[in-house]
Protein backbone atom coordinates (compact mmCIF):
# COMPACT_ATOMS: atom_id res chain seq x y z
CA UNK A 1 0.00 0.00 0.00
CA UNK A 2 1.50 3.25 -1.07
CA UNK A 3 1.35 6.62 0.58
CA UNK A 4 -1.88 7.52 -1.13
CA UNK A 5 -3.51 4.28 -0.01
CA UNK A 6 -2.57 4.94 3.61
CA UNK A 7 -3.84 8.46 3.28
CA UNK A 8 -7.14 7.38 1.88
CA UNK A 9 -7.66 4.62 4.41
CA UNK A 10 -6.98 7.07 7.26
CA UNK A 11 -9.56 9.44 5.83
CA UNK A 12 -12.12 6.67 5.51
CA UNK A 13 -11.28 5.40 8.98
CA UNK A 14 -12.02 8.87 10.35
CA UNK A 15 -15.41 8.96 8.67
CA UNK A 16 -16.29 5.46 9.86
CA UNK A 17 -15.25 6.31 13.42
CA UNK A 18 -17.36 9.43 13.37
CA UNK A 19 -20.40 7.36 12.47
CA UNK A 20 -20.03 4.86 15.30
CA UNK A 21 -18.99 7.26 18.08
CA UNK A 22 -21.59 7.50 20.84
CA UNK A 23 -22.22 11.16 21.63
CA UNK A 24 -24.35 11.09 24.78
CA UNK A 25 -21.48 12.49 26.81
CA UNK A 26 -21.11 15.59 24.66
CA UNK A 27 -21.65 18.85 26.50
CA UNK A 28 -22.81 20.98 23.59
CA UNK A 29 -25.39 20.37 20.92
CA UNK A 30 -22.97 20.80 18.02
CA UNK A 31 -20.72 18.10 19.42
CA UNK A 32 -23.52 15.61 18.86
CA UNK A 33 -23.32 16.07 15.09
CA UNK A 34 -21.60 13.00 13.76
CA UNK A 35 -18.97 14.74 11.63
CA UNK A 36 -18.22 17.47 14.15
CA UNK A 37 -14.82 16.22 15.26
CA UNK A 38 -13.42 15.52 11.82
CA UNK A 39 -14.71 18.83 10.52
CA UNK A 40 -13.23 20.65 13.52
CA UNK A 41 -9.86 18.95 13.07
CA UNK A 42 -9.72 19.67 9.35
CA UNK A 43 -11.06 23.22 9.38
CA UNK A 44 -9.28 24.10 12.62
CA UNK A 45 -5.98 23.12 11.08
CA UNK A 46 -6.61 25.24 7.99
CA UNK A 47 -7.82 28.20 10.03
CA UNK A 48 -4.74 28.07 12.26
CA UNK A 49 -2.32 27.84 9.33
CA UNK A 50 -4.12 30.65 7.52
CA UNK A 51 -4.37 32.86 10.59
CA UNK A 52 -0.76 32.48 11.64
CA UNK A 53 0.52 32.97 8.08
CA UNK A 54 -1.60 36.10 7.69
CA UNK A 55 -0.43 37.53 11.00
CA UNK A 56 3.14 36.57 10.09
CA UNK A 57 2.93 38.53 6.88
CA UNK A 58 1.15 41.41 8.51
CA UNK A 59 3.69 42.22 11.19
CA UNK A 60 5.17 39.25 13.03
CA UNK A 61 7.82 37.92 10.67
CA UNK A 62 10.93 40.03 10.22
CA UNK A 63 14.46 39.42 8.99
CA UNK A 64 16.52 37.16 11.21
CA UNK A 65 18.93 39.93 12.19
CA UNK A 66 16.10 42.31 13.06
CA UNK A 67 17.29 42.91 16.61
CA UNK A 68 20.98 42.97 15.72
CA UNK A 69 20.77 45.85 13.33
Amino acid sequence: MGKKGMFLSAVILGILLSLITPTEEAHFAWERLSFFNIAFGFLGCIVLIGLSKALGKLFIQKREDYYDR
Binding site: V11, G14, L17, N37, I38, F42
Partner: peptide
Protein backbone atom coordinates in the same frame (compact mmCIF):
# COMPACT_ATOMS: atom_id res chain seq x y z
CA UNK B 1 -9.84 12.61 19.86
CA UNK B 2 -8.73 10.12 17.22
CA UNK B 3 -11.01 11.70 14.64
CA UNK B 4 -9.87 15.18 15.51
CA UNK B 5 -6.21 14.30 15.19
CA UNK B 6 -6.62 12.15 12.06
CA UNK B 7 -8.22 14.99 10.18
CA UNK B 8 -5.72 17.52 11.47
CA UNK B 9 -3.04 15.29 9.98
CA UNK B 10 -5.07 15.05 6.78
CA UNK B 11 -5.28 18.83 6.52
Amino acid sequence: MVQLLLYTAFA
